[in-house]
Amino acid sequence: MLNQKEILSTIAMIDQQHLDIRTITMGISLLSCCDPDAKKACDKIYEKITRYAEKLVKTGEDIQHEFGIPIVNKRISVTPMALVAGASETEDYVPFAMALDRAAKTCGVNFIGGYSALVQKGMTLADEKLIRSIPEALDRTELVCSSINVGSTRAGINMDAVKLMGRIIKDTAARTADRDGLGCAKLVVFCNAVEDNPFMAGAFHGVGEAERVINVGVSGPG
C-alpha cells in the first residue's frame, strides 16, 4: 500500500525532476523474411513489422494515461539488415531501407533501427552493399537509423571498414546537407557493439534474441 509520502515523492519526480519512460522499443526478428526476390523480401519485412508492431504506439499511450508517467518515444529495432538482404539477388539495398521506413510510418513510431552490418572482423558482399547504400538510404528515408560495427577488442579493428565508413559519412552529410546533414544524426559507427542494442540511433535486434521483445528505457530523475 502506497503512503502519502511515496505518492508525493513520485509526483515530484515527474513534475520537477523529469522522470519519464524515455522509450519503449519493440525488437523484431526479420530472419524469416529472407527471400531470393528482393521485392518479396521487402513485402515480407513490411508485413511482419506492421503486424507485430501494429498496437505498439496505442499500447504505450494507454499505459502512459493509466499511470501518468510520460512515454516519450515508441520505436522499433530489427535484425541487422545485411543479414536479411544478403539472401536476395540484388545489388540495390535501398528498397530495404524504404520498406523499413514505410513500416515505421504505418505503425506511427518515432524511429526504426537496424539498417546495420557487423563487420568487425571482415565484410561479406552483403555487408559492403549495405554500407555503400547508406548515404542514399538515409537521404530517401525519414525514420530509418543505421549502424555499423567496425571493431572489437577480440577481433581488432577492420581498417577497410573504417576507411569506407569515412567516405560514407562524408557522402551522407553531403546528400542531406539541405537538412543540416540529418543523415549523419541517424548513423552510428561502433566498436564493441553489444549483441542486442535497443537504443537509437544504433539499435538492432540481436540474432540471439526472441522473435519479438519489448525493451524499456527509463530516465532517472534529474
Score class of each variant (00 low, 15 high):
L2I: 05
N3P: 02
A12L: 06
D15T: 10
H18M: 14
T23D: 12
I24M: 15
I28W: 04
L30I: 04
L30T: 06
C34G: 11
K39C: 05
K39G: 02
A41L: 14
K44C: 00
Y46V: 13
Y46F: 09
K48D: 06
A53W: 06
K58E: 15
G60R: 13
E61K: 15
H65S: 14
V72G: 00
K74N: 14
R75A: 13
S77K: 11
P80Y: 00
P80Q: 03
M81L: 14
M81D: 05
L83R: 11
A87Q: 09
R102L: 01
A103Q: 00
C107P: 07
C107I: 02
G108W: 05
V109E: 09
N110R: 06
F111K: 12
G113D: 01
V119C: 08
V119G: 05
K121F: 04
E128H: 09
R132T: 02
S133E: 01
P135Y: 08
P135I: 07
L138W: 11
C145T: 12
V150G: 06
G151E: 01
T153D: 08
I157L: 13
N158E: 01
D160A: 05
A161G: 10
M165C: 11
G166D: 09
R167H: 12
A177V: 10
K186W: 01
V194M: 13
E195C: 12
N197D: 10
P198Y: 06
A203D: 08
V207W: 00
V207K: 14
E211R: 08
V213S: 15
V213M: 13
V216E: 09
G217M: 11
G220N: 09
